[in-house]
């Protein structure tokens, strides 16, 4: 393939490689797990992926804007701790919504702290957010010193149960497609996020985020308020961390002061798998969500292919590495082929 075309194709559709990879890993998974597409199995899988998927969306937006957020996992822990502290099995519906609203505000406040430090005090994003992550993790431990808490079963049930679409039950063809009759709730959340993004992509705000991340100096001289935009990306990331915590809490039904800590690096890996480069200005959130699903499906594959116990971690890491190296490798090979063609005589 022509190098310029290849690059353009990837740049315009940064998620393309992720999509290809997603199809491949799902097929590999499916070849050993034929119930993969059963609504209940699909639901079980996707509801576990959802918290990280939401988190990766926030991370992707920060990275596109030219930053990085190493505190998202700790924010999830903090919000998870707050949720199980404020919501007990006896909490009434209105109070639950209030608690969720407050947690969203806490997430955005945490993001604001990061944003001010990075955008206005001009501190290095990696170091700054690494440092603030300890603040958030410390707060989580203070609020919830040991694992515990319980959500109302209505709330956990809402997250876990398939949504049955009665209207489709009698329509021919559709009624035979079980996944349309019984929809995992996580699908609806993902659909809402994607639709929202599709709309936001057409606004100035997102246009500015891309421009600031791509070439901050150019954006500034063009009259874009780069600092405010960068601040905004961290606040958005904080909001998504709070929503990821909500999903995680509904998924687990309880809280732990370290529940989200391991999610930070996974969120970054997912963003990169999704075709977003760490230097900013390019990529998107659909790819990031695909990256999350890829990471999850890789775990399934390891499980269903009976990888020997002692090599599971190694195989997991190797597959992720190969996936990350994929686009670069393809580019390298296409370059080699081009060189070979040019040097190998005048045929054609």
């Amino acid at each position: 393939m022509n190098q310029a075309n290849f690059r353009r194709l990837l740049a315009r559709n940064s998620y393309l490689f992720a999509l290809l990879l997603l199809i491949v890993v799902v097929l590999i998974n499916y070849s050993r797990q034929d119930n993969l597409f059963d609504p209940s199995v699909l639901n079980r899988n996707i509801r576990v992926f959802l918290p990280l998927a939401i988190l990766a969306v926030g991370q992707a937006i920060v990275i596109i804007g030219g930053g990085i957020d190493l505190s998202v996992g700790a924010m999830v822990s903090l919000c998870n701790a707050l949720l199980v502290t404020w919501i007990t099995p006896e909490t009434a519906g209105g109070d639950i919504l209030l608690a969720i609203g407050l947690v969203a505000l806490v997430g955005m406040a945490a993001g604001l702290l990061n944003g001010i430090a990075v955008a206005y005090l001009r501190l290095q994003p990696i170091v700054t957010t690494y440092a603030t992550s300890f603040i958030f993790a410390g707060l989580a431990l203070t609020i919830l010193p040991r694992p515990g808490g319980q959500l109302p079963s209505d709330m956990t049930g809402l997250y876990r149960r398939l949504i049955e679409v009665e209207a489709f039950a009698n329509i021919p063809i559709i009624q035979d497609i079980s996944i349309l009759r019984e929809i995992p709730p996580a699908f609806i959340v993902i659909a809402i996020i994607l639709l929202l993004w599709a709309f936001l992509r057409q606004t100035r705000l997102v246009q500015y985020i891309y421009a600031s991340g791509d070439n901050a100096e150019a954006a500034y001289t063009t009259g874009i308020p780069v600092q405010r935009i960068r601040l905004g990306t961290y606040v958005i990331s904080g909001f998504f961390a709070a929503m990821a915590a909500l999903a995680l809490t509904m998924s687990l039904g309880s809280g732990s002061p370290t529940s989200g800590d391991a999610m930070t690096l996974d969120s970054i890996v997912a963003v990169v798998l999704g075709g977003t480069r760490l230097r900013g200005g390019q990529g998107g959130i659909a790819g990031a969500m695909m990256g999350v699903v890829i990471l999850g499906v890789i775990r399934n594959i390891i499980s269903f292919y009976d990888v020997p116990t002692w090599s599971q971690t190694l195989v997991d890491a190797l597959i992720i590495l190969i996936a990350l190296a994929g686009p670069g490798f393809v580019r390298y090979v296409s370059d080699l082929i081009r060189r070979y063609r040019l040097q190998g005589g005048r045929a054609a």
Partner: peptide
């Protein structure tokens, strides 16, 4: 790995 998180 977690005292309550796996319950569900």
């Amino acid at each position: 790995g977690d005292q309550t998180g796996l319950n569900l």
